[in-house]
Design a protein around this nucleic acid. Structure first.
Lengths: 142, 142
DNA sequence: GAATTAAGCTACAGTCACTTTAGCAACGGG
DNA sequence: CCCGTTGCTAAAGTGACTGTAGCTTAATTC
């Protein structure tokens, strides 16, 4: 029997996060000790490791729920897992493209700034005036 | 005098978002019409455009607050803007690197999956067992 | 001038994936 | 038996918005 602290250390997950996964139904409710503390089996650890690894690869908890469900039914076709992974790959590729456009723009801003007063600062000028940009970057952030 | 709807259209910002920026003190409280509706000047529009453009380039609202403050003081040195932009550039570059490692891993998973039953699915196998990965990807997600 | 429609108002809840905090209770080694 | 570590619940906070409910005001059309 494993404590929540052991699961935490062995998977690099914070204790609170494990309880959070239980709360949203990603992890099963474990048994309890006489005093009311959570006690886990090895298969709980495996499940948590699966979740964390999927998160590291950028899958959302929503999607991980489906992946876990698939993983629990070994005889089913893995076509769905394939679709999920391919969709995620496309998403990651898109994000990379967007970030590369951003990087280019930031590089240009930084390299063109002479480092004098704010009034002649290229960086602030570009931020003020979108038309100085090469790309559209109409979406926000990442 | 401009309405909030005009600002919204001219900057591609949702009305609620403008009110949110006001609430957190990024936008100044504008004057009001007789009936209590917000009325803006052109310089409010400029400020909002600055905020949105900065967001599109991935700066956080926290950082944008500093950039706006700099922009409001034209005689100051732009060294700080330079530092902020360079720091952000590094962050973007790091994110790209991480995403490229993720992409590689996802590609490998997808390409090695034969598309049979879940029990032999390479995708689910990799998710189960981190040791099959090439990279560490110890951080989470994006 | 009335009626309709579009736009605006406040206040609050919801999103995602956790993290933090407060204030306790239980466990394990010495 | 003591005490430091670990665990417990419940609730609020994070960032950057978005959505909803239930109104009021402004603008347009007849």
């Amino acid at each position: 029997m494993l404590t929540i602290g052991t699961l935490s250390k062995r998977t690099g997950t914070k204790v609170q996060t494990i309880r959070y996964y239980e709360q949203i139904g990603l992890m099963n409710e474990p048994g309890r000790s006489a005093g009311g503390q959570r006690r886990y089996f090895e298969h709980d650890l495996d499940r948590l490791a699966f979740i964390r690894h999927s998160r590291q690869l950028g899958f959302s908890l929503e999607v991980i729920r489906d992946l876990l469900d698939l993983s629990d039914h070994p005889s089913r076709s893995c076509a769905e897992a394939d679709v999920i992974a391919r969709r995620h790959l496309l998403l990651v590729e898109k994000r990379i493209e967007r970030l590369q456009a951003l990087k280019k723009e930031l590089r240009r801003m930084v390299s063109e700034c002479a480092g004098n007063s704010v009034s002649e600062c290229k960086i602030l000028e570009v931020l003020r005036d979108h038309s100085e940009c090469l790309t559209d970057h109409d979406e926000i952030g990442a």
